[in-house]
Design a protein around this nucleic acid. Structure first.
Lengths: 113, 113
DNA sequence: TTCATATATAATAATATTATTATGTTTTTA
DNA sequence: TAAAAACATAATAATATTATTATATATGAA
């Protein structure tokens, strides 16, 4: 139940264009903050804030290397998520038979009202 | 590129405790609004709003059945996402070797600064 | 030491999300 | 045909997210 909430929180964090780009990069390997500055078109403090948020959530972490901070992915959940995020899904699910009133098809579970 | 953004928008929508619960239910089969009222502890208008948002995003759709509206899942992406959302991930990814300054390990890509 | 580099933190204003309350629409039933 | 059931929509206040600006810290170089 609390696990549910924390997963939702992680999803919420990932659901941002900049942060998902950061995570996609990190899934390829370690990367330092100044690397991100080169291709993310946002300010350095903003990058830091996004990295900080991801870190506080336990999704990423970093090594200190001189004056660099080299970030890396920690979460296997995020790896899986990134994979389906970039996957193509042609078409939609087949619509189910319905409905409880017209008695077309079957209706899952109970219905009282 | 626009595909990227719309995927992020979908993620954003899913990243909400009520909406993900709705989607989890719908992944089991069709369900009408009053069914949701029985186990979601929020108001009917609020349920409608969440359903409306999911529908406008093309994630779900409904049949009209008398005065019922029976919602169902349309998005195969969401099916995959729900699966990994509930999956257990024991442990973390192994930390990579680092770093560019200390020359420990290898560093992916280019670094100038 | 002093300066520049690499990064983080804090404060804040703009914007977006959320739940609530009130009301509207459509369909069935009495 | 009037009422109720099932659901949607609109307006709004509370809250959360976001990017910006300014400033701080820590490390290495000169």
């Amino acid at each position: 139940m609390n696990d549910f909430i924390s997963r939702v929180e992680i999803l919420k964090l990932i659901a941002h264009p900049v942060r998902i780009t950061i995570l996609q990069e990190l899934s390829k390997g370690v990367k330092c903050v100044s690397d991100f500055e080169e291709f993310l078109e946002i300010s350095q403090p903003n990058i830091s804030q996004h990295l900080g948020a991801l870190r506080r959530a336990g999704i990423i972490d970093f090594f200190i290397d001189g004056r660099l901070r080299c970030y890396f992915l920690k979460s296997p959940f995020v790896v899986d998520l990134l994979e389906i995020f970039s996957k193509e899904y042609p078409g939609e699910l087949p619509g189910p038979e319905c409905c409880p009133t017209t008695k077309k098809g079957t209706y899952p579970g109970e219905r009282r009202r």
